[in-house]
Design a protein around this nucleic acid. Structure first.
Length: 487
RNA sequence: CGCGGGGUGGAGAAGUGGCAUCUCGCCUGGCUCAUAACCAGGAGAUCGCGGGUUCAAGUCCCGCCCCCGCAACCA
């Protein structure tokens, strides 16, 4: 593996970004930064973006009394700003109303095996209020669960994709991990879904039902693409798929490891529909799909009606990007839902960032100033004291267990604290054991440089701050890295 | 009988037959280099419930209760 392509999902922009998408950005960013260090920045491409074509966006714009195009541009910008304030290292941010995307989506449609796309009448129970079809099971007393109105039986001719052609192939790819799905529980879920029998799915809507918003089907202006068909192709389109540009050659068809980071709600689209579309078009598949859970707030699902949404902008303003990144990575488990609460956040901040990391850094730099004349000698062997940590991080990141990787780093800080307590340099100073103290300072200084190095993908600003400080000619006691919050 | 995952001190988790572990919080003591930080010790768990196998069960088997995903054209 010499090149690495990592993507987040592109959220539809019918509302402000919430803490859940911040989680996905931060997780993908750690992977991207880790690979940037390993492979070099030129060999990593990190994409995120926004889905502007969803019908939900049209409905949201209407509610706000704005034109759809103005509305989505404005909302996409907020998502773009979120990547900035969280210090996300993405190379690109794609919006699905851009020409490169539209042309790419059309090209993918045209590249699919023509036998896989066919026209068929679809009829279903349609709610005018929701502008969507419901299945019989979703109804409440035979009525729309949202509007409690009776549904109309609507029939429409759409294009369909012959997913059934790929049932066996998909099962084999997923079962054998050629298309690896992490965690295992999601993989099992997808295999069960496939084995249950795949039905063809519709990949277009009438222009009228789509309100004229979306990517027109090539050669048929009466239809626009089903939003998922065009949305998924963003992963190709950002690489200039429509002209098969350099990036496309380098990061999709070339020898490149391709990873999608997604939330659990869209597993099927990424693990089944998307690979099937690529198979039909004869294009390479992604290697790996990591499915994370959702962020709950105070133990409850995020919901607008409950009013418990957490605004990542406010959080970053108040506590800084580094602390928010740390919380999301450390507190939210890799494979399940995790909880956000202000109380837990403050607790993490105090115990991990202020006490463990910040305080240990302060006490060591202070001792270097006091007992070592502001100097320490870095060990010549890389990872002289921490080789196990590097391996642990590598292992945990391969499985996206960011919490465990961080725990491995923080264990080093505990090691330093214990050794300081055992050796008591301030006592040694009284008995004039200056040379012995220096050896300890050399070790601890080296270990803190290692900690900084390991933290780079997780908390890049903090890592740089620590490094700069430790590489001064004459080290003085540092200002707190993470000051206490109250009093 | 749709498919799958889970229930372990106050919270979150680890633990595939052999002394119940880790992180946070709580209590006590110690230390004074440090951001009231740090170190040591401690309290706190009938391992969802009932039965079974075994010298030995959180772990294996059977039954029950509860929670959470998925269950196809909203994204």
């Amino acid at each position: 593996m010499s090149r690495f392509y990592v993507t987040t999902a592109i959220p539809y922009v019918n509302a402000k970004p919430h803490i859940g998408f911040a989680l996905e950005l931060v997780q993908a960013d750690v992977i991207a930064r880790y690979q940037q260090i390993k492979l070099g920045e030129d060999n990593v491409y990190f994409l995120t973006g926004a889905d502007e074509n969803s019908l939900k966006n049209v409905q949201a714009a209407e509610k706000e009394g704005k034109s759809t195009s103005n509305y989505v541009a404005e909302m996409s910008d907020r998502f773009r700003t979120l990547t900035k304030i969280l210090n996300i290292s993405n190379n690109d941010f794609i919006c699905t109303t851009e020409q490169r995307h539209i042309k790419g989506a059309v090209k993918l449609w045209q590249t699919c095996n023509p036998e896989d796309i066919y026209k068929k009448f679809y009829s279903g129970l349609y709610c005018v209020g929701c502008e969507q079809y419901y299945t019989q099971e979703e109804l409440v007393e035979g009525k729309c669960p949202e509007h409690k109105t009776k549904l109309e039986l609507v029939t429409e001719e759409n294009y369909f994709f012959k997913l059934s052609n790929y049932q066996r192939k998909l099962e084999e790819l997923i079962d054998s991990d050629q298309l690896q799905i992490i965690p295992q529980s999601r993989k099992n879920e997808m295999l069960a879904f496939i084995r249950d029998g795949l039905e063809d799915f519709s990949i277009s809507r009438s222009r009228q039902r789509a309100r004229g918003w979306g990517v027109p089907v090539p050669g048929d202006d009466s239809q626009v693409m089903y939003v998922w068909f065009d949305a998924l192709s963003n992963y190709l389109n950002a690489l200039d798929f429509y002209i098969e540009g350099e990036l496309y050659k380098k990061f999709w068809v070339g020898e490149s490891y391709k990873l999608h980071v997604i939330g659990k709600g869209i597993t099927r689209f990424h693990c089944i529909y998307w690979p099937a579309m690529l198979l039909s078009a004869g294009l390479p598949l992604p290697n790996k799909i990591f499915v994370h859970g959702y962020v709950t707030v105070d133990g409850q699902k995020i919901s607008k009606s409950l009013g418990n949404t957490v605004d990542p902008f406010e959080l970053v303003n108040k506590y800084g990007a580094e602390a928010v990144r740390y919380y999301l990575l450390r507190e939210i488990p890799a494979y399940d839902d995790g909880d956000f609460s202000e109380q837990k956040f403050l607790q993490r901040y105090e115990s991990d960032l202020a006490n463990s990391l910040g305080n240990t850094f302060s006490r060591v730099t202070n001792m270097i100033e006091r007992f070592g004349q502001g100097k320490f000698n870095q060990a010549e062997n890389i990872n002289a004291y921490t080789s196990g940590t590097a391996k642990a991080i590598e292992y945990h990141l391969r499985n996206f267990q960011f919490d465990k990787a961080l725990l491995a780093v923080f264990n080093l800080l505990a090691e330093i604290d214990v050794e300081i307590d055992q050796t008591k340099p301030w006592v040694m100073a009284r008995t004039g054991q200056i040379a012995d103290i220096q050896l300890l300072l050399d070790k601890w200084g080296t270990m803190l440089l290692d900690v900084a190095w390991y933290l780079k993908p997780f908390m890049p600003e903090t890592a740089i701050k620590m490094e700069k400080f430790l590489r001064q000619n004459k080290i003085t006691k540092s200002q707190p890295l993470f000051p206490r919050l109250n009093n």
